[in-house]
Amino acid sequence: MTNPLSRALQSLGAPVTNALIKLGFACRFLVSVLKVSPFALCRFSLTMREIWFAGVLSVLIIVVSGLFVGMVLALQGYETLVRFGASSSLGVLVALSLVRELGPVIGALLFASRAGSAITAEIGLMKATEQLSAMEMMAVNPVARVVAPKFWGGVISMPLLAALFSAMGIFGGYLVGVQLLGLDAGSFWSQMQSAVDFRLDVVNGVIKSVCFGFAVSLIAVFEGYDAPPTAEGVSGATTRTVVTSALVILGLDVLLTAFMFRGI
């Protein structure tokens, strides 16, 4: 370590250098996951099983939370809009906030805590109990057999979950706005439809959720694979998955939103 650059990096201290080393390893890990992905996706029953774990088992929490979030949005929005005599725009408010922001973001946060932590714990425990080593010794690549299907299962599930969240939220908004507060159903839907743009709002929301799915799945499988093979190691990795995912989701959201809606 004699060259000035590495000295400069070392002076930043161990936390920074360790974080950089980890980031570099995560990139290398992503490449090795992508490299074996064709194999993993060819055996689609493996990915099916992971969609079951990551997607199907998250449906309940997504649907219920989506419904509640939509209802709260409608109640809160109505209070404000009715002062300006614009209560017929309630559908617009609910739909735009869900489709653009809350669906992808809250969906991804729930997904990270429900499915991401489970993925990390499973891979971490498989490593701790030498199951990954055993696979390697059986000439089966654990990245291809275990990691890649979990990764793609998450990537495929996430946009579907986010769409379910938004749809349920809008339904919740409809229940509160039309059934409870007595707005006109026709204007609720038609105002919403004329104000929400398919390409600008819906497609961008889906793009966001795909990006979040990619990020959360990568963090989850990486933390599991990188976890120290002990009980504390796995529990720490599970916590890190949820915390890192939340930070990355929100940070990415700022970036993507600035990129998508800037100047329009």
Partner: peptide, 19 residues
């Protein structure tokens, strides 16, 4: 390496069965 491992069988200390 993967070809060579096909000649090997290994019994791990705690079995390492897929749970």
């Amino acid at each position: 390496l993967y070809g060579m491992r096909r000649k090997l069988g290994m019994l791990f200390q705690f079995g390492a069965l897929f749970t």
